[in-house]
Design a protein around this nucleic acid. Structure first.
Lengths: 224, 224
DNA sequence: CCGATATTCAACTACTCAATTGATTAGTTG
DNA sequence: CAACTAATCAATTGAGTAGTTGAATATCGG
């Protein structure tokens, strides 16, 4: 094989992986899969795509070996083939935010009062957990909580927050987290808690970043 | 702005960056730019693309703010906007190699006797340099050497290796490096040196990885 | 100002990709 | 086995993209 040919084929293969993550939809699917294993139906609903379309995107990802599938009964459950897949997605996100003023502007204006919500660094939260002085709530859907969550966190999906307020201590500061830096759920939760007179902050980033940085993770007994 | 709309626009922006690096050609250009600033003409020649085509790819990269341009006289010099751009490209490469058997197979078979050439880790080379007991040659084109190289390395472009053999000590082990893990020049250099009875090894990876890991870099006085 | 050179632009072709639709497969439940 | 469901497949549409070609722009040396 000549150098030219080798080089072309090599970059073509690299492009195959890169192309798998180049689509906005697929990036979103990867973000969702970073929360844990999900069925196609589930993913389609979350990403607001048609089943067929979702399935096709997943095929592309599978073709690049970025996700793996497991069939159980009627459903097919997809998961990331390895943690680095989300790592690359995160790298792209970081680069995008640094490079594209548009992204930063979008995030700033939509997730407004970004700084007012006083994001809490991971390390600080870990210290509080270890010291037993943290009230942490996971506002993601229960399924995502089951697949893995911060140790000691309560699962209170955003929709249940209002009616389960009483479960939370009145005086202590509550820390909310969700899927990641661009996920709106924790912002929303903090805003609502404050509206009810509670002290609340959100964790910087979300669960996938927590796990990626090697911090301890708790898993619920799962109906595998 | 509604959540749906926000989410769509966000992922669309992310896709813009991702799409910029999804093309095999552009990945190759990024690899070349990781060596240092280059003119369009130069890049076109290296990547074996037409001028117009190269220019267009560079426009795309510039649109995503991944590269910056500087005009000097007739020429336009492009460079990476920040080191992380190559970082993402490296991440993609790593993922591709881990995920696609094809890439591994390509690299294994083409850069054959991969292990026989005994790649030398960066840290070990650094120790030798500090101890003054390393003979390092940079086999990239002279221009890339000028833009930055490993301290103390001799610039011996691959084409000149044969006629400049006498400059190299006969007994000491020679360490060759080039552009990166998929660059064939160092392999070729080591093979030729061994054919002449010299002891030679290659550095794992290449110069961009050396720089990315924060090790010292030397720059020649440059005709900026 | 002329000719030469590096780069970009504009227009076009061939190709690839996202998404939709309707049909099909595989597995479950009554 | 029939009815139902989750997922995939096949075929089609429209949009976007890569690459080529030739013209336009900008800059330099004489």
């Amino acid at each position: 094989m000549k150098h030219r040919e080798f080089k072309d084929r090599l970059y073509e293969e690299l492009g195959r992986v890169a192309r798998a993550i180049d689509s906005p939809r697929r990036l979103e699917l990867i973000d969702l899969l970073a929360q844990g294993e999900r069925s196609v139906e589930d993913l389609a609903a979350e990403a607001m795509l048609s089943m067929a379309n979702t399935s096709q995107h997943l095929q592309v990802l599978r073709g690049a070996r970025l996700v793996e599938a497991r069939k159980e009964g009627l459903r097919v459950y997809y998961r990331l083939a390895q943690a680095e897949v989300h790592g690359v997605a995160r790298a792209v996100r970081g680069l995008a935010q640094a490079r594209l003023a548009e992204v930063d502007h979008l995030v700033q204006t939509h997730l407004e009062s970004r700084d007012e919500l006083e994001p809490l660094p991971r390390e600080e939260l870990l210290r509080r957990i270890r010291g037993g002085r943290a009230v942490v709530i996971d506002v993601r859907p229960r399924e995502e909580y089951r697949a893995g969550h911060i140790p000691g966190a309560l699962s209170i999906p955003l929709g249940e927050l209002d009616k389960r307020l009483s479960e939370l201590p009145a005086r202590k500061e509550i820390v909310a987290y969700c899927r990641g830096p661009y996920c709106v759920m924790a912002y929303e939760a903090v805003a609502r808690l404050r509206a009810r007179g509670r002290r609340a902050r959100r964790l910087t980033d979300g669960f996938p970043e927590w796990r990626a940085s090697g911090l301890p993770v708790q898993t619920s007994a799962q109906p595998r």
